[in-house]
Amino acid sequence: MNYEWRRAIARRKVLLLIIVTVLFEVAPFVVFTTLREPTIQNFIRAFSDIAWLIGVLAPQGLFIHLTALLIAAGATAEEYEQGTVDMLLTKPLTRIEYMTGKFLGGFTLAGFVSLLLALLGIFLARVTFGPQQFLEYAPLVWLSSLYTLLLFYSVGFMLGELYRRSGHALITGVSVLISSVVLTGILFFAFTLTQDKFYLSLTKVLPSWSTGNLPNMVATELFLKNRVISFLQFGPPIEGTIPEAAAYVLVYAVASIAITVARFLRSDIPRRTI
């Protein structure tokens, strides 16, 4: 695990994305404190006691998933690209142990980044808006956010192993993420035109629905009671349940991991690819 953290952190693009994510985390609080229009001030007043939630959920929209994709896409692929996988797999280590170490190492790093962002969000909310309510639920909301990270992390991990090229894996992973968001919009638009719920059910299958909505659903269930859900919601409002969203995350993650393991166990380890 230590190895995987050091390897990932040594990659400048990972560091860069973490910095961008932190900036994205700070940005809403800067905006809220600088805008003085009465409508915005009223809006802020409505949720200033639970502003920490913005800090916890804001990166959830895009950046934390990009970070997860970036870490995962390079986890195995870069070892092939650099030829370092040979050294690792000719030691007393089974392939399953190697894969498990890679997966958990990268995922804990992505989770750690997510935790730091959540803590930063809580800190900024406290500094900007004063004492915060319902902070006792923050760990659960963060855990649900961490759980959703599994989806794009696993997809990125799978793509890294399938392509064995980190760049290809990242581009495909990001395309999946963006296409999913775009498709959600298109399907929602189709629904508003036709009122056919089939379109809504399709959006739920897309990876962005479960990852974007599960933490909101958990927060709503715990304490929100629709106070700011519309503001924090990622994408158009599409009804769903927590078990439904959790199941979709699990299905994507399990399928991706299964494909990764099958590919890794059944194929040759290539010589250095770049």
Binding site: R6, R7, A10, Q82, G83, T84, D86, M87, T90, R272
Partner: peptide, 11 residues
Amino acid sequence: YSPELPTLQGF
């Protein structure tokens, strides 16, 4: 094992 033209963990 020492591979041909080895590349080791540069970090």
